[in-house]
Design a protein around this nucleic acid. Structure first.
Lengths: 358, 358
DNA sequence: TATAGCATTGAATCAATCG
DNA sequence: TCGATTGATTCAATGCTAT
């Protein structure tokens, strides 16, 4: 079944989906409203205000209303998806569980959940939770029996320096030049996704010429990356301003040469090993003694990976700096632990953990 | 309400939960069956067979049966949880969405989802999907209004070398010596969790002496780490063999020295010292001058602990906010007093008072 | 319930400044 | 002119608590 492509369909997501024929698209990427439930304004410690997502389109009356909406658009997506196509859905802890249950209940077959690990997330300014540093994607085939979905295993392995691509992807937020601006020069859309994310998805689960559908088109990242990578695309967007800005954005995109569509991207910084991880791993135990380079002063390791030297407590770096009366100190090379061969820098223990992590 | 602790309750999870009193536990860690839906045997490229989870306890007839079971044990967990307690639930893409929806529908308030990023996951032998390299934990408070849950923010920040702990944790699988063996020397339990994972959870969300409940006790990792870290524990397990092996394991654990379990405390928990107490104690005198950070503006201390800047009077916070034209201001760090070493924040004077209070 | 106290931020980009 | 440094700005956020 053919379908008109490389267009933005303006209007209600579900109505527009209903206008598409059965089994007409190869890949779906959906970034639905997250149903955030924010309190009042949020101020940073410096008293500046966080520009939150308080748009009307993210407001739902209840979980039940959100669930009903979710099932409706997902059911239409399943209808328009070719039997060998797959769907990607992205969300955060606010909505991803609702999305996942709807995906499973409608008969899709989950292949993986993928973690977008953000290299530069916004901190938790109030110090009341963990930094919310990731989002979750669900990747699913049309049904349990569908084993012949598109998955470019070898392309991803090559991309990833010849090791299998994992289910956690470290990628930066969309900022700077890449961030779409409106005519007034302000951020055009509050939740624009990075092109690198769509690049990896299209590389993994589509082929040149495939039709990629995005029912929540927003700033048009899916269309921009699809065009660049030689895929056809269909966007659905109800907000005319978003649609206009997205169209302008996509018009500027130069498609790549087909032969260049293979090599791109790079691995990002690997996660750090904090000192606390040594305690957690049992390489050091709470109560163990660490020594300064000359060995005449000793501090005690605590359960949270902080050090105690008399009344002074804090991280390995902070306590080292205080003892040396220095503005800063690298605790990894400063502190020593007792081994059979005498005192050794704790950096050796970190090296052990890193070796075990490859 | 008190409850017998440091015991394994053998029997059906839901029945045993019903025997526990309301609001009797501080923290719950639940690692329920994952409802894996495996096809036939899985062979590695070298034709060796993967030892999969095909135990009888992981079989459910349908999503509906799994959901009903999930809601039942989660509802009981919510009943036995203290109002200021929190729950942790772990799962993979097979079941985490069902768990998350049940958690939300029962009235829990999700605080974070946490990614356990495995440093050494099992590869995808068939090359048909991404390496499934993580599991997901849901951390939730008892209800939306509950803001006073236990969260050792400063301990985790110290653990992580003075940077906020993020929602993705890189930890190794449980292997080698740590892996519990049965009397025949074979792996005792197919889904044993690493102690490092429980260490971080207990460090984050409990205090010494707290009661930690694990309704799917299995190999007893929760009990072993709780005992080591000076927490009390309750395990529920229906398989007598698992329970026996877990008990032997826990009996061997040596609790840590209590003073090594003290962690970085939060400023919020410190006794409140009103600014007036500094005047009362003679550390400042009525008429003394306080200065803004750059020193170009000065305010006068008054006998009641208010400040006067020209016509503006009020608390140290209010006057600071007005001068800075900010919605709020922490007067303790904003205002400076004159000392021999130049201007210093009045917070130093508060620290003197607090030191004298012990 | 309303008020006032007062604790709380990491990585990246970009513009402006300085040497 | 170039490079280093500083400061302002920004990022899907269920974001406080004692009286």
């Amino acid at each position: 079944m053919t379908v008109a492509t490389d267009v933005i369909l303006i209007g209600d997501c579900i109505e527009r989906l209903k206008s598409l024929p059965d089994r007409s698209v190869d890949l779906i990427f959906a970034d639905p409203p997250y149903n955030l439930q924010l309190g009042g304004d949020l101020l940073r410690p410096d008293n500046s205000k966080v520009d939150a997502v308080d748009d009307e389109w993210d407001q739902f009356e209840s979980f039940a209303a959100y669930d009903a909406f979710t099932r409706e658009w997902l059911a239409e997506c399943r209808r328009v998806l070719k039997d060998e196509g797959t769907i990607w859905v992205i969300g955060s802890y606010h909505n991803i569980f609702r999305l996942g249950v709807a995906v499973q209940d409608l008969g899709f077959w989950v292949l993986n959940d993928i973690i977008w690990r953000k290299s530069n997330p916004m901190p938790n300014f109030k110090g009341t939770r963990f930094t919310n540093a990731h989002e979750t994607l669900i990747w699913a085939a049309k049904g349990r029996g569908q084993t012949r979905y598109t998955f470019n295993y070898d392309a991803l392995k090559a991309f990833n320096e010849d090791v299998q691509m994992r289910s956690d992807w470290t990628l930066a937020l969309c900022t700077g030049e890449e961030r779409l601006k409106d005519e007034a020069g302000k951020k055009a859309h509050p939740t624009q996704k990075p092109e690198a994310l769509l690049h990896r998805i299209l590389l993994a689960a589509s082929r040149p010429g495939d039709v990629v559908l995005d029912p929540f088109f927003g700033s048009g990242t899916t269309g921009a990356v699809a065009r660049k990578m030689g895929r056809r695309w269909i966007g659905i967007e109800r907000d005319e301003t978003y649609a206009r800005l997205a169209q302008k954005r996509i018009d500027k995109v130069k498609p790549l040469n087909p032969e260049d569509l293979t090599v791109m991207g790079s691995k990002r910084a690997e996660p750090r090993v904090p000192f606390g991880a040594l305690v957690e791993a049992g390489l050091l135990r709470p109560g163990d003694r660490l020594f300064c380079p000359k060995g005449e002063r000793e501090a005690r390791v605590r359960a949270d990976g902080s050090l105690a030297y008399g009344e002074i407590t804090g991280s390995i770096h902070k306590v080292g700096a205080l003892l040396e009366n220095a503005p800063a100190c690298n605790g990894w090379t400063y502190w020593r632990f007792k081994s059979d061969q005498g005192l050794k820098p704790i950096d050796h223990l970190r090296a052990e953990i890193r070796a075990g992590m490859q």
